[in-house]
Design a binder for these strands. Structure first.
Length: 690
DNA sequence: AGACTCACG
DNA sequence: ACGTACGTGAGTCTC
């Protein structure tokens, strides 16, 4: 293992080190060495690159925490210098002392003997190697297998071998483990092989065990759990750091085999560790019944993709471009200077210095007064430049984030957009979507709405959406057991109108538009643990009015208040928030002595059970729906999930067949004290679904 | 890399 | 006295 000579050897680490910039030293203790964070450069020679990187991450985490804390601690309190003892697991920087038996299977004889052994196994770990990271475009180079510690096999892929492996891969009685199995599932699916029996994904296990971590990559799990430093991909392929993707194609099979076998072997070891921990944390049901079965569902959605028409976007792009050019000119004229409107730094100078727009009541950021939309709205009448800036911002966002970006994401092979649905990112249990994010396509602004029109159904099909109506509020009503709110939902009242009637003490038919919109703001805000200030912003009313509103709200719905207090109490005792399905979110800061940090954790304790249960619920529905539409992908395909809605592409004459079944699954999957209502919409494009 | 802004539920 | 709503991803500028 290569130890670092000095940080100057490594541009990345050198930059990292420069950004640390600590005000006070942090002390570190390892079994055989003690050092302060000021001495990082001196001690770096005893670490390998990966060790040192992980150390830097820890130092930065601590620095951020200390900086955050310092701002809030009063003068009388001494700021404690950070001190931290690395846990044995972290300190256990095991060196390469282990023995491995890894085999490259690259001829018929070796393959026959390997296959014989594999056939004896009822559970194993596998990993696929491809020429790239996009499962659609990539070529399958090989598969590695492991079922015993220190032993693994790498099969160099060809058609014949894949055919012989097919019965095993497709047999759902034979359990498959892996790390990020969705990728392997998609790769094999595109080779015409159905990977069945997905049993244990270490990435998902790691996520369920610690959903606040955003990184669950294999290398760092192996390092922190087993103290082993895997061969780095970069070293393997001799790739330049600036190269984004690593092409394994043409790589020496021996090297690829070693790398892949290591992946399978160590994933297999992690399976053992995480299985115990999942069980100990009572996460088995959630893991086995929801998260694991969801993998092929998401894989299918990603493979399906969604069709996009580029012509309407190009037309819109031109319109928006013209408007932007005109706005730009008008803004320069109004400011009597040319500047970069996208630079908040320059914009601030223009607004607050050159044009001297008064800054009272404006929010501040770290670098001065904010120019965010909320703040611009406050200045709206003070200068004609403001409305132009607001339009500019809206249109510019539209153009850069959507109009320019989306057409580039159309896959040339399929003519469709294939997003990634990430299952291990959001701390509450929600999915997230990347490359591109199809969960934040505009809907509110009128111009933006047009972008949805470009997402279309294939000829002969329609897009059909199913969305849970007020799902989070219904869950809050159920979980709190609040009689008034339950009754409102049972009577199928408009919940915001009902709330407005309750807090204003008027009859339902006497509720004004204003009363309803205020009530709506409170209903939403309460799910976030909002205080009077936030509500006054959200509802456009004064602080004191907002304060009164909240008081009345809790008087009308006393059990909601009780539930919120209870959520905090429970989190304080257990140090985590929990959903109806047993998903846990650790909240270690719930007992912090620093009010701001503690309050923030308290809001998470209020919000997570509601948001997280809604996420569990729709995931469960997706799994069940996938079962009924399995094998009918010519008739119906699930394309998108947007937190409380599912969007399908259904053959026109099959819509009537599937709609009631899907609705039934979504509405009846979980029995609550209130009905769950699902609304459906049909259209030729996404814009028509409302 | 971090800050800011803004799109969605 | 203080700040002040939950959860995301992406584009752009600045250092």
């Amino acid at each position: 293992m290569e130890l670092l000579k000095t940080y100057k050897d490594n541009a990345y680490l050198s930059q990292q080190l420069a950004t640390i910039n600590l005000a006070a030293p942090i002390k570190f203790s390892l079994p055989d060495i003690e050092f302060s964070s000021f001495d990082l450069e001196k001690v770096m020679t005893v670490f390998s690159e990966l060790e040192f990187k992980s150390l830097l991450v820890k130092v930065k985490e601590l620095r951020d925490k200390i900086n955050k804390d310092q701002g809030k601690i009063t003068k009388t309190e001494e700021t404690p210098a950070g001190e931290r003892i690395l846990s044995p697991g972290e300190a256990k920087f095991a060196r390469n002392t282990q023995k491995f038996s890894y085999q490259l299977i690259n001829d018929d004889k070796k393959f026959a003997s390997f296959l014989k052994k594999l056939k004896l196994e009822k559970i194993f770990t596998l990993d696929t190697e491809t020429s790239g990271l996009d499962p659609i475009a990539s070529e399958l180079l090989g598969l590695s297998f492991s079922w015993k510690e220190g032993e693994a096999y790498f099969v160099l892929a060809n058609k014949k071998r894949l055919e012989e492996l097919r019965p095993i891969l497709e047999n759902d009685k034979i359990k498959k483990c892996g790390h990020n199995l969705k990728f392997d599932w998609r790769v094999l699916k595109n080779q015409g092989v159905d990977l069945n029996g997905l049993f244990f994904d270490t990435m998902i296990a790691s996520y369920l065990l610690n959903p606040s971590n955003r990184q669950h990559n294999l290398d760092s799990l192996v390092f922190t759990e087993l103290g082993f430093e895997k061969i780095s991909k970069v070293n393997l392929a001799d790739t330049q750091p600036e190269q984004l993707t690593i092409d394994f194609k043409g790589l020496d099979p021996e090297k690829l085999s070693l790398y892949s076998c290591e992946d399978a072997d160590f994933t297999n070891r992690l399976v053992k560790i995480f299985t115990k921990r999942i069980k100990a944390e009572n996460l088995t049901e959630l893991f086995e019944k929801i998260e694991m079965p969801l993998i092929p569902v998401l894989g299918e959605m990603e493979n399906n993709g969604v069709k996009m028409e580029t012509e309407p976007l190009q037309k819109l792009d031109k319109e928006v471009g013209d408007k932007l050019t005109k706005l730009e000119k008008a803004i320069y004229k109004s400011a009597q200077t040319k500047f970069n409107i996208n630079s908040t730094k320059q914009l601030k100078e223009v607004l607050f210095e050159k044009l001297a727009i008064p800054t009272t009541n404006l929010k501040k950021t770290k670098t001065g007064f904010s120019t965010a939309e909320d703040e611009l709205a406050k200045m709206q009448d003070l200068h004609p430049i403001i409305p132009m800036l607001q339009s500019y911002r809206e249109l510019n966002k539209l153009q850069t984030t959507y109009l320019n970006a989306l057409p580039k994401m159309i896959n040339p092979k399929t003519g469709r957009i294939h997003t990634s649905f990430n299952q291990t990112i959001a701390a509450t249990g929600r999915l997230s979507s990347t490359e591109p994010n199809l969960q934040n396509i505009p809907t509110r602004a009128e111009e933006g709405q047009k972008i949805r029109n470009a997402f279309v159904a294939e000829r002969g099909y329609k897009l059909v959406s199913f969305d849970y109506s007020q799902i989070e509020l219904r869950l809050a009503a159920h979980m709190s057991g609040d009689q008034k709110m339950i009754k409102a939902f049972k009577d199928e009242e408009d919940i915001h109108t009902a709330t407005a009637a309750e807090i204003n003490g008027v009859k339902l038919e006497e509720v004004t538009k204003k009363m309803r919109s205020e009530a709506k703001a409170v209903n939403f805000g309460l799910l976030y643990g909002q205080g009077p200030h936030g509500l006054s912003q959200g509802a456009g009313i004064s602080y004191w009015q907002a304060n009164e509103f909240i008081k009345k709200y809790f008087a009308a719905y006393p059990s909601i208040k009780k539930m919120m207090d209870n959520s905090i109490k429970e989190a304080r005792a257990k140090l985590y928030a929990v959903t109806l399905f047993g998903r846990k979110r650790p909240l270690p800061e719930i007992n912090s002595s620093i009010p701001m940090i503690r309050k923030s954790a308290e809001r998470m304790a209020i919000n997570t059970p509601v948001q997280g249960t809604a996420a569990d619920l729709i995931k469960m529905a997706m799994v069940k729906i996938a079962e009924i539409i399995k094998g009918h992908d010519d008739d119906i395909r699930l394309l998108l999930q947007v937190h409380d809605e599912l969007i399908f592409e259904i053959k026109t004459d099959k819509i009537e067949t599937y709609t009631p079944q899907i609705k039934e699954i979504m509405q009846e999957g979980l029995k609550l004290r209130v009905p769950i209502i699902v609304d459906e919409n049909i259209g030729n494009n996404w814009g028509e679904l409302k």
